Amino acid sequence: GHYRIRINGREFEIRGISEEEIRHLEEALRNGADEKILKEIVDRLRG
C-alpha cells in the first residue's frame, strides 16, 4: 500500500504498509494513542 497522511499541516507519504496495519493504527487512534502511533509509524519507516 501507498498512502498520504497529513500531520500538523505537513503531508507525508507512507509506503509499504498493509491494510491490516492500517486497521490496527485506526483502532489505536480511536483509543487515543496519538503520540505512540506516530512513533510506531516513524520507527517503521526508519526500517
Rank of each mutant, 00 (worst) to 15 (best):
L38A: 03
H24W: 14
K36R: 12
S18F: 03
H2K: 06
R46A: 15
E20L: 06
V42L: 09
R44T: 10
R46F: 15
I5Q: 00
L25S: 00
I22F: 13
R10I: 14
L25G: 00
L29Q: 07
R10V: 15
A28V: 12
L29G: 02
V42R: 03
A33T: 13
L45M: 07
E40Y: 04
N31K: 11
R6H: 14
F12I: 11
V42M: 08
K36S: 10
G1A: 05
K36I: 10
V42F: 11
R23Q: 14
E20Q: 07
I41T: 03
R23Y: 12
L45Q: 02
N31M: 10
A28P: 00
I22G: 04
G9D: 05
Y3F: 12
R30F: 12
G16A: 05
E21D: 15
E26K: 07
E35L: 08
N8V: 01
I5G: 02
H24G: 14
I22W: 12
R46W: 14
R6S: 07
I7M: 02
L38S: 01
N8Y: 07
E26M: 08
R15F: 15
I7G: 00
E21I: 05
E11T: 10
I14H: 00
L45T: 02
L25E: 00
R23C: 04
I22R: 07
N31A: 11
L38C: 03
R46I: 15
A28F: 10
H2R: 08
F12P: 00
I14Y: 02
I22H: 03
E40K: 05
G16W: 08
I37E: 14
R46S: 15
G32S: 07
I41K: 01
R30I: 13
D34M: 08
L45P: 02
K36C: 05
E13L: 04
I7Y: 04
F12M: 03
I14G: 00
E27R: 07
R30D: 08
R4E: 04
E21V: 05
R30P: 02
A33L: 12
D43M: 07
R46N: 15
R46E: 14
R30C: 05
D43K: 06
R4A: 04
F12C: 02
E35N: 06
R30V: 08
K39F: 15
S18Q: 06
I37C: 04
F12L: 05
F12H: 03
L29P: 00
I5N: 01
A28N: 05
G1Y: 11
L29I: 14
R6I: 15
F12D: 00
Y3P: 01
F12N: 00
E35T: 08
A28Q: 12
R23M: 14
R6T: 15
A33W: 11
E11P: 02
I7A: 01
I17H: 02
E19Y: 11
I7H: 02
E21Y: 03
